[in-house]
Design a protein around this nucleic acid. Structure first.
Length: 254
DNA sequence: ATGGCTTGAGTGTCAAGA
């Protein structure tokens, strides 16, 4: 069973790339972030024609998340319970006995900004929610754009990024806190090339220079982690014309 | 140098991303 996550930066623009990628990779589950579509505009017909079902949670202009899956998605929940959030950043569903939580974590803009405070509150609410989810689901996966580079090795220039947004100690502590619940970072279960990243700025030829960050992650509960056989970042879509600035991350479970 | 691209909004040019 293949689980994947991809921040597509507009599903409207990237739909042909998503359909191509589904046909090639055939994942059981693909979590999407930054769909940037209102719910009525979600392209269900095209996705269904590709052999996938979908559940989604969107809004105008910004944010928006979706879970595409081969089999039925049940027990769908949209947004973090008990957290008043006007932004469409989370959707969860159970697929093939796996509880899938798809999140588009806040960016935070700058340390000490209002958006940073919102990011920290969002992370605290997510943690509370995941404690509950873990108590109900042994097979639990959290996938998405975390907007956190967990360690210096996840950053192309750790000195320049020290204490900056996506790398600040409080953000990294929140990530470590999720690992403290028992989650494993699927990517780090395996030997990986140095300087492996999942996002590269559109500007300054950042992709060609591999000036990136690893901010898209797949976290697995202990049961799923022991079933995980590979985890990799697929840089191919980043090479296409009009790419998303993020690459898909894929984990294979047995 | 707070820029550099890209998207969505909307038809000017800005907000937001990371």
């Amino acid at each position: 069973m293949k689980l994947a996550t991809w921040n597509v930066n507009s599903l409207k623009v990237r739909l042909p790339q998503v359909l191509d990628w589904l046909a090639r990779q055939q994942p059981a589950v693909l979590c999407l972030q930054e769909t940037k579509l209102e719910d009525h505009a979600f392209p269900l017909a095209e996705i269904a024609a590709a052999g996938y079902r979908a559940v989604w949670h969107g809004q105008k202009t910004y944010n928006g998340v979706a879970i595409l899956c081969r089999d039925e998605a049940v027990d769908v929940s949209r947004a973090i319970p008990n957290f008043d959030d006007p932004q469409a950043r989370l959707i969860a569903a159970t697929v093939d006995g796996v509880r899938v939580v798809c999140g588009y974590f806040p960016n935070g803009q700058a340390v000490a900004s209002d958006k940073y405070e919102y990011k920290l509150r969002w992370l605290a609410a997510l943690r509370t929610y995941l404690v509950t989810e873990m108590s109900h689901h042994d097979r639990l996966a959290l996938l998405g754009d975390f907007n956190i580079a967990p360690e210096d090795r996840d950053v192309y220039d750790p000195v320049a990024w020290r204490d900056q947004i996506l790398c600040s100690p409080k953000e990294r502590a929140a990530f470590a806190d999720l690992l403290g619940l028992g989650f494993k970072d699927a990517f780090r279960l395996f030997e990986q090339a140095e300087r492996s990243f999942s996002w590269w700025d559109y500007r300054m030829m950042a992709f060609r220079r591999n000036h990136g960050l690893r901010i898209d992650h797949i976290l697995l509960s202990p049961d799923l982690a022991s079933a995980c056989r590979t985890c990799s970042i697929d840089r191919e879509p980043r090479r296409l014309e009009r790419p998303s600035d993020h690459a898909p991350v894929v984990a294979e479970l047995c």
